[in-house]
Computed example of a mutant assay.
Amino acid sequence: METASLSGTLRVILIIILVYYALRFLLRIFAPVIIQQVVKKAGQDFYEQQQYKQPRNAPETGNKSPRPAEKKKIGEYIDYEEIE
């Protein structure tokens, strides 16, 4: 069984610190590219999902008349008053 030496412990700590800073450096370089790809993919998925929800035979929104059609009148409005 070997005992831990001071030089071995310092070597492990130094390796951990170097790996940490190397990962930080690489992440700063590649993070914008990765985030851009993720956002692009999410936007593409959202667009496809919206296309799937719209019916194929529905008229386009530009062809609608400026006023909505009047609703069918069922009866006249009666205003009730409270009697005390």
Rank of each mutant, 00 (worst) to 15 (best):
42 A>T: 06
38 V>P: 00
71 K>V: 08
38 V>R: 08
59 P>E: 05
36 Q>K: 15
57 N>A: 12
80 Y>D: 01
74 I>H: 03
35 I>Q: 11
40 K>R: 12
43 G>K: 09
76 E>P: 00
37 Q>G: 07
67 R>N: 15
53 K>G: 01
55 P>F: 05
42 A>V: 10
64 K>Q: 10
34 I>A: 14
80 Y>S: 01
62 G>P: 01
37 Q>D: 11
49 Q>S: 12
47 Y>L: 13
64 K>H: 07
64 K>S: 06
70 E>P: 12
36 Q>C: 04
56 R>Y: 08
48 E>S: 02
73 K>Y: 00
73 K>Q: 06
62 G>Q: 11
43 G>E: 13
76 E>I: 02
73 K>E: 04
52 Y>H: 12
39 V>Y: 06
57 N>T: 08
34 I>V: 15
52 Y>T: 05
62 G>K: 13
71 K>N: 11
38 V>T: 04
50 Q>F: 11
42 A>I: 15
45 D>F: 09
38 V>E: 07
38 V>G: 01
80 Y>E: 04
57 N>P: 00
70 E>A: 14
73 K>R: 06
49 Q>P: 00
77 Y>S: 00
58 A>E: 08
39 V>P: 00
34 I>R: 03
36 Q>M: 10
75 G>Y: 01
52 Y>R: 14
69 A>K: 10
58 A>Y: 08
68 P>Q: 10
80 Y>R: 06
77 Y>V: 05
69 A>I: 08
50 Q>L: 15
55 P>W: 00
38 V>D: 02
74 I>M: 06
59 P>T: 05
71 K>T: 04
68 P>E: 06
68 P>A: 13
54 Q>V: 14
41 K>P: 00
63 N>R: 12
68 P>C: 01
74 I>S: 02
70 E>F: 03
55 P>G: 03
35 I>K: 10
47 Y>P: 00
67 R>C: 05
49 Q>L: 09
57 N>L: 14
59 P>K: 05
66 P>C: 02
59 P>S: 03
69 A>Y: 05
60 E>W: 06
69 A>Q: 07
77 Y>M: 05
46 F>M: 13
36 Q>R: 15
52 Y>W: 14
59 P>G: 01
63 N>M: 08
68 P>R: 13
38 V>Y: 07
67 R>Y: 12
67 R>T: 12
68 P>T: 05
47 Y>S: 13
56 R>V: 15
77 Y>H: 10
47 Y>D: 09
75 G>H: 02
57 N>S: 06
40 K>G: 15
71 K>G: 09
50 Q>R: 12
77 Y>F: 13
52 Y>N: 01
45 D>K: 03
45 D>M: 12
46 F>E: 10
49 Q>R: 10
62 G>M: 09
62 G>R: 14
60 E>M: 08
80 Y>W: 07
52 Y>V: 01
40 K>W: 13
66 P>E: 09
50 Q>M: 11
58 A>Q: 08
66 P>I: 07
44 Q>R: 09
51 Q>V: 03
71 K>S: 12
79 D>T: 10
55 P>E: 03
40 K>Q: 14
37 Q>V: 05
40 K>E: 11
46 F>S: 11
75 G>M: 06
66 P>D: 10
49 Q>G: 09
56 R>S: 09
56 R>D: 10
40 K>F: 11
54 Q>F: 11
44 Q>H: 14
40 K>C: 08
74 I>A: 03
37 Q>E: 12
38 V>L: 04
38 V>M: 03
75 G>K: 08
79 D>A: 10
59 P>R: 08
68 P>H: 09
40 K>N: 13
78 I>Q: 03
48 E>K: 04
67 R>H: 15
